[in-house]
């Protein structure tokens, strides 16, 4: 894999380490850390800082039975949940969201496909499959949009993003990502609100496809 040029901004990493990033973003950041040594190290540095805060926290006495309760449970059998590991181009956190199964693609026309892998009140995460030369449907978004490239590459007004790169687009950015020549571009995209399409037809399709 070529070197990663676009990384997770430090504030997002700190919020992720502290557990205060909305779920859709947390999933994309976890996937980027899985692929990127630099961001893993920064993430671990934030964990270290969190540990320092924990260590400096004033102690509060615990009840007398807590320790004996816990000691008595050490040998109790544990049912451990299976962990879904990286598979092909999909990092562990993506496989986890897919429940270990391959993505179920839905066509958006012109060879573009998507698979929504997580969604809820705080936004959604989807995989996008874009054939070379195709554009992601013209869209704007209400809040922050994070896009992690898993295969191939795309280019837009802000640069060229290859495998492992993370594009961070705020709501002011009106961009048109186009997949580059070569392998179809597969990326993981998170928004904290439904996407708004700027052209009429996709806007009508929006409720249909949950995009």
């Amino acid at each position: 894999m070529k070197d990663i040029s676009y990384h997770t901004p430090d504030a997002l990493l700190a919020a992720y380490a502290a557990g205060n990033l909305p779920h859709p973003y947390a999933l994309v950041v976890a996937a980027h850390i899985s692929l990127c040594v630099e961001c893993r190290v920064s993430f671990e540095a934030h964990q270290a800082a969190g540990g320092v805060v924990l260590d400096s926290t004033e102690a509060v006495g615990v009840s007398d039975t807590l320790k004996t309760d816990i000691m008595a449970l050490l040998d109790a059998p544990v049912i451990s949940k299976p962990v879904h590991k990286r598979s092909g181009i999909y990092p562990g956190p993506v496989m986890e969201a897919l429940n270990g199964k391959p993505p179920r693609w839905k066509s958006l026309g012109l060879g573009v496909r998507q698979s929504i892998i997580a969604g809820g009140a705080d936004g959604n995460v989807r995989l996008l499959y874009i054939p070379p030369g195709q554009a992601v449907p013209d869209h704007s978004h209400n809040g922050l949009e994070l896009t992690l490239v898993l295969q191939g590459s795309f280019s837009d007004e802000t640069g060229c993003y290859g495998a492992g790169d993370l594009e961070v687009a705020d709501q002011d950015l009106q961009h048109t990502p186009i997949a580059d020549a070569g392998l179809p571009c597969i990326c993981l995209a998170a928004t904290d609100a439904p996407l708004r399409f700027t052209s009429l037809v996709p806007r009508m399709l929006q409720p249909l496809f949950r995009i």
Partner: peptide, 19 residues
């Protein structure tokens, strides 16, 4: 921030990336 009480926007505006 490390108690999880600041959003990433607040971290970016208040902490000046101390970390």
């Amino acid at each position: 921030a490390y108690l999880g009480e600041l959003t990433h926007q607040e971290i970016s505006s208040q902490m000046g990336l101390p970390l």
